[in-house]
Amino acid sequence: MSVLHIVNRSPCESRSLELCLARAAAGDTVLLIENAVYAAMRDSIAARQIETALGRIAVCVLEPDLAARGFAAAAPLEGIARIDYAGFVELSVAHRAALSWC
């Protein structure tokens, strides 16, 4: 059964995203929220890690957190899905367990 990984730290501040990606199983979902949304930007410090993981793992970013930080109009990395809070709730329903890498 799959796991929803929730990451909330900026990739510039913390290795949480990198370590989460290394420990996630195929079929898991990684959701970037709060300061972790900076990782979703093209050419971010985490862009390569995310691109390598995509295909094996689904990656989503929380839209209201992008907007709050001035990135509503910015295009995230290709392959990252933008979701709202309703999408966050749906992801937590669809996965057996949620893990906050805070």
Partner: peptide, 19 residues
């Protein structure tokens, strides 16, 4: 941190969606 605000939005949305 923002975590409690995120939790609030999550809970509010879950309730609105009938959970």
């Amino acid at each position: 941190s923002q975590a409690s605000a995120t939790a609030y939005q999550f809970v509010e949305t879950a309730l609105r969606k009938g959970h």
